[in-house]
Computed example of a mutant assay.
Amino acid sequence: MSARTHLPVGQEARMAKGWIGAHRYLLLRRASQVFFLALFLIGPWFSVWIVQGTIAGSLTFGVLPLTDPFIALQSIVAGHWPAATALVGALIVLAIYAVVGGRVYCSWVCPINPVTDAAHWLHARLGLHKGWQPKRSARLWILGTVLVVSALTGTIAWEVVNPITMLHRGLIFGMGAVWAMVAAIFLFDLLVARRGWCGHACPVGAFYGLLGRTSLIRISAANRSACDDCMDCYAVCPEQQVISPALKGKAGSTPLILAPDCTNCGRCIDVCAQDVFNFTHRFDDHLAEPSSSASERSAA
């Protein structure tokens, strides 16, 4: 609910931009997630081998290697130095996410994201309390634990229980018990901890967050003087704590969202009827000139 207008979240944006305009980045993210998943599935399903392998490690057109750097890191600490091709693939992925933002993986690629988004939608629809909220540092502790276990056991520990890999395998070989894993994550976010899996538990998200700390692509609240305090951006943001420093910062503070927790999902851009937010780069910290209506609200 919008605090200022008492309208449902995003209603102002839908009236100003139309339904598609108010869901543009959400639709693009779903298309991106389907696209990346389809690249891996059309081979085993239809024998069209554009990509061979899984999200963990693949070869595109038989030439381009791509390796999940988190898996490569686990392999290294486990005492198994990856092959040269796998190392090159990990470096390519590292370079990509160092530019676009590490947690872009979470919102634009990860196939578990639609599951947790659906849980959050139902959570809000039912008006449930946010529930248990572990510290956000918990996922860093889980990340560290995964690396320690890999080192002690000589295995790529997280892949034993990684829901991303399990879902991918399930779609190829049959879901079976994988449905129980998907349901568990959904129910965890719905009933136990709002946005709990991606925001507090997943070590993959924690790793990519660290990777993207200095990434180039950023969201900026460049037009923050036009903010009418509807709070819709906070309502849809999966990492609400990243917004305030940019949107409500002191005079002279950067409007850029620089927190590594930001997933660059673009939902704050979608739901803002005042067009406060936009995608830009980390060196673009300009602020838009206050509009006359914004100046009037400030004076009032």
Rank of each mutant, 00 (worst) to 15 (best):
D189M: 06
W179I: 11
T145K: 09
W132R: 01
I172E: 07
V148C: 00
P111Y: 11
G144N: 03
W108R: 12
C110Y: 10
W121K: 14
L167F: 12
V204Y: 11
W141I: 14
A119P: 00
N162Q: 05
E159K: 13
F173S: 12
D189Y: 08
L140N: 08
G196H: 03
A98S: 15
R169G: 14
W108S: 06
A95N: 00
G196T: 02
D189R: 10
W158G: 00
F186Q: 06
F188L: 11
I172L: 07
H123P: 00
A138H: 09
A193Y: 04
M181G: 05
L128I: 09
P111D: 07
G176W: 11
L147T: 00
V100D: 03
V149K: 02
L147S: 01
C198E: 03
L128T: 03
H200V: 08
L187P: 01
P163M: 08
A124Q: 12
L128N: 02
L122W: 15
L122M: 13
V160D: 01
V149M: 01
M181F: 12
V99H: 06
L143Q: 02
L147Q: 00
N162F: 06
W132I: 06
V182R: 10
G144A: 02
P134M: 02
L128Q: 01
T153L: 15
G196I: 04
A138P: 01
A98D: 03
R139L: 10
W141T: 11
P203V: 02
R195T: 06
N113I: 10
C106M: 08
A180E: 03
P203K: 03
S150N: 01
A180M: 08
P111R: 13
G205N: 09
G131T: 00
G131N: 00
K130N: 10
G196M: 04
A193G: 05
P203C: 04
V148I: 15
I172K: 11
T165P: 04
T165M: 10
S107H: 08
V100A: 06
V160F: 12
R125K: 14
D189S: 07
V100R: 10
V192P: 00
K130P: 09
D189F: 08
F186W: 09
P114W: 14
G170V: 04
G131K: 02
C110K: 08
A183N: 00
P114T: 15
A201V: 15
A193F: 06
I112L: 15
H129F: 09
I164E: 07
I96H: 08
L122Y: 13
L190S: 05
I112D: 01
T153G: 03
W141D: 04
W197F: 15
S150V: 06
I156L: 10
Q133N: 04
V161I: 15
W158I: 03
V160S: 07
W121A: 14
A124G: 11
G101P: 01
R194W: 13
V100K: 11
C110T: 05
W132E: 00
H123N: 07
T145W: 14
Q133H: 05
P114I: 15
T153K: 05
V149F: 09
C110M: 08
V109N: 07
D117Y: 15
P134E: 01
L94C: 12
V100L: 13
L94E: 01
S107A: 14
V146P: 07
V115H: 06
L126P: 02
W121M: 14
A201R: 07
F188C: 02
